[in-house]
Design a protein around this nucleic acid. Structure first.
Lengths: 347, 347
DNA sequence: TGCCATTATGGTACCGGTATCATATTGTCG
DNA sequence: CGACAATATGATACCGGTACCATAATGGCA
């Protein structure tokens, strides 16, 4: 059904080190050195080489270089979804560090499934990424084995609970959630619901639920299990879930959401129903996305140093790759409870 | 300051085709074939090979494969920022298609500068990406030359204005903006402001301004140049800009924003000031982000088939890579005016 | 002045797949 | 039954850099 213009591969014959070397009257290896360790080449020679490179428009073939040097300067990163500003902000922090050090980002989305994650890990290993970045600590057994056996540096972010494959950067979801329950209790809310995001393959959400339960117990709040629900991460589902909650358990006084988008959806639904926030009903979120500060009333939430987590993760990987000893393999970047208008009932 | 554990490269000696071949009692090339063109190998042989692969846990080295076959199965993509849900949704559409066809995504952010874009393009060419995906049509001269001279397929998205380097997928920003002005005019607004996003290196925004101007003229609206402003893309700046506008030109009747986030910020500020939307003031956005439908009143906006644009871009690249003739190198995916509560003054 | 450490450069093989062409085997048909 | 096409497999070289080791040139110092 197709073509006559097959890729005539082998004979493309781009310009390579050899051509540059000939023009600069040096050996190919010297061209290579002039690019990777400029100080190791005499200034005059280096200059000749650079001129030759510019003259012929040489672009080094990193595929060949990678094969030879066993370093690709590629970092493979897996995020659950491209659609979440939370995930992309982690990635942004990492991408900036990588770029500044000459590394490139191989990015894949797992759609919150460990199977797709596994297939991406295999792909990245196949491409011989110099380091692997994973979101969370829930993986298949094969992923765990491949990454432990292979000598690739690995960093897992956003979750400190559990034993990391190699390194981890993030915060404690349990502690963060617990801290928020304390805040809600201090505001005077006693009957608090929890809207978790989908929990499958997501130990972050499970941690938040655990922290919630622990807080409910610690502060002597109403421990009705029917107050915990799982809500898809979009505004419409959140609105719907809040409606159901209010009908099912009209005496609920507040809801703590595992994500700000859900919290915002809950808030919009309250406004639609004329439920006053925070007087009649308190709402707290998680993540401190841009939107949280701008709805009316602004959302109380948990702020995470997302950019910094991504950047730190990148630095750990690069240190490991460079052979530097990594003193701390588990880095807790902390969190911050941001109290805003959506939770202010009592002093 | 560092290490004793230098990367002892050359001697890593992973398992390769040769080991697998020995175990399966075939030649290395047959192993290679069993993986890339399974039908070209006899079933019995293939089975032996697959068993050998499983037995030794062989993971093909795509770096070596790439060097030999001159195909990396890597697509380099450049987006202006990781922080925008608009950009990541395009990327998501592309990433899904790529993954399903065995390609991986090399992703970089240009921070809206053509210089960083150029440096990323060079990196991607160096890594010998099989295809390049760019956002917009504004590039440095060198990028244009490198990509035209190199035989890499290139697709530019989100902007159909101007002549593409190779292929383009998107919609007409001018037409979309013009259509929105028509809608606003039909709603009865006559004195309309335009909040553009930053225009540097962004022909999408320039197109939207052009469409706005054209619409203002075509429908005989108030053409005060002071009504056009450039606003950073965040809620706070948008709120501030709206405040200034209302003080500077209190008789303004509506604002059309080059991005929904800015429109939402404007809406929040109106609410804060007690300006009634849409009765006293109309607001329209661009992009139809999730948030647009859920603020009160919901935002009138321009909806773009973002996922589809990304997916189509990926398919064009892959077709070109596969040597299939690409019939249409410029694909207009259209847009849709979504009229909602924020613009409803008159019939 | 001679010896050795240091610096600058080069020769060669090799990384681990696969393109290319050759060969062996099997099947078809007059 | 022989000739030839189709199918299955293999031998070899090569992709384009760089690791590794060798050698040449330079400099410091006894």
């Amino acid at each position: 059904m197709s073509g006559d213009k097959r890729n005539s591969n082998r004979q493309t014959r781009r310009i390579g080190v050899r051509e540059v070397a000939r023009l600069a009257a040096v050996a190919p290896i010297t061209v290579s050195r002039a690019l990777s360790l400029p100080e190791s080449v005499a200034p005059a020679t280096r200059q000749r080489i650079m001129e030759a490179i510019a003259a012929v428009g040489y672009i080094p073939n990193r595929v060949a270089g990678s094969l030879s040097s066993n370093q690709t300067r590629l970092i493979g990163a897996i995020i659950p979804t491209f659609q979440s500003s939370v995930a992309t902000e982690f990635t942004d922090g990492m991408a900036r560090v990588l770029r500044s050090r000459g590394y490139q980002l191989l990015l894949g989305g797992s759609n919150f499934t460990v199977e797709e994650e596994e297939s991406l890990v295999v792909e990245f290993l196949s491409h011989r990424a110099d380091g692997i970045y994973l979101t969370g600590t829930t993986h298949t057994e094969r992923v765990r084995r491949l990454l432990r056996e292979g000598d690739v540096p690995v960093v897992e972010i956003a979750s400190l609970e559990g034993e990391p494959i190699d390194m981890a950067v993030g915060f404690s979801n349990v502690d963060a959630s617990f801290a928020m329950v304390r805040h809600l209790a201090e505001c005077g809310y006693r009957r608090i619901a929890f809207f978790s995001l989908p929990q499958t393959n997501n130990e972050r959400q499970l941690g938040r639920i655990a922290g919630f339960r622990r807080g409910v117990e610690a502060f002597g709040l109403d421990a009705d299990p029917a107050l915990i629900a799982e809500v898809p991460m979009d505004l419409a589902s959140a609105a719907r879930a809040l409606g159901e909650l209010l009908e099912r358990r009209p005496d609920t006084e507040a809801v703590f959401c595992g994500g700000d988008l859900v919290a915002a959806g809950a808030l919009f639904e309250c406004q639609r129903r004329g439920v006053r926030v925070p007087e009649d009903f308190g709402i707290a979120g998680f993540d401190d996305i841009d939107l949280a500060a701008f709805v009316q009333p602004a959302l109380t939430t948990v702020r995470l140093p997302r950019q910094a987590i991504g950047a730190t993760a990148a630095e750990l990987l690069l240190d490991r790759i460079a052979g530097k000893p990594v003193e701390q393999t588990i880095v807790d970047m902390g969190f911050e409870i941001v109290a805003r208008g959506s939770t202010r009932r009592v002093g």
